[in-house]
Simulated scan of single mutants.
Amino acid sequence: MIRGFRVDLVVPVKPLPVAKTRLRGAADGGVGSLTAHTRLALALAMDTVTAARAARRVGSIVVISSDPAVAMELGALGADVVPDPSKGLNGALRHGARVLREHEPACAVAALQADLPALRPDQLDGALDAASELFGSGATRAFCADEPGTGTTLLVAAPGIELDPHFGRGSAAAHLASGAESLDGEWPGLRRDVDVTADLEQAAALGIGPRTRAVLAAREQPQADGRPL
């Protein structure tokens, strides 16, 4: 393991109205209110960044987003928010990695997905420790696959190595083909990203962060006319 190993993170967050579109309705019992949906999308990102900030291996966090609410709320959590360059997800991640290395040229950098409401700081530290061990043995990049094993929730590049992200459909295989090594470990909260309602239910069973929990609790509270929120 590399002594004193710390990693700077880049976290991409889409504009909230178009983020996590397959979750539309999950925050309000299927109604599909845009207000409820954006509240959920923001809560997912905030719980993810809060957990990441508490990890001992994490240094700086740069959030790539052009959404004003994201900038305000995640900035308040201690992240630096940088406008999205509008070059797609992988372009945003490459831009974020460059921003991080402008300040710390020798840092290790990692891309972390923003939809991990069950993430625990110790799980992220465990994955980063595993990456450090791989880098100490000569590897240059490593990734953590999602729970199904086809996607990627975390991609780490050793100091001085380009991040080279390949997120998208089948990203686990794409990262493996690009030369990144797979990280082995349980880390259920790190692997449980949330794309659809079933994923959200699984994350809730693991134990989600307070903001996402509050959004889900609110959908059970009746309005004045007796309907759920």
Score class of each variant (00 low, 15 high):
118 A>C: 04
135 F>N: 13
84 D>I: 05
69 A>R: 15
91 G>Q: 05
58 V>E: 13
74 L>M: 06
133 E>R: 15
85 P>L: 07
87 K>H: 13
102 E>S: 14
105 P>Q: 04
79 A>T: 02
158 A>H: 06
39 R>T: 13
74 L>K: 02
155 L>K: 02
157 A>N: 09
113 Q>D: 15
42 L>G: 05
104 E>L: 08
53 R>L: 13
147 E>Q: 14
109 V>R: 06
81 V>T: 06
87 K>R: 15
97 A>F: 03
53 R>N: 11
74 L>E: 09
37 H>L: 06
134 L>A: 14
115 D>F: 02
50 T>P: 00
42 L>Y: 07
163 L>D: 08
149 G>H: 01
135 F>A: 04
55 A>H: 01
98 R>Y: 00
118 A>R: 04
85 P>G: 04
43 A>Q: 06
126 G>V: 08
56 R>W: 05
88 G>Y: 10
120 R>D: 02
108 A>D: 05
39 R>L: 12
134 L>C: 11
81 V>Q: 03
118 A>G: 05
67 D>W: 05
57 R>G: 14
111 A>D: 01
108 A>K: 07
87 K>S: 14
146 D>A: 07
167 F>C: 04
84 D>A: 08
54 A>F: 10
61 I>M: 06
38 T>F: 00
37 H>D: 07
119 L>P: 04
57 R>A: 14
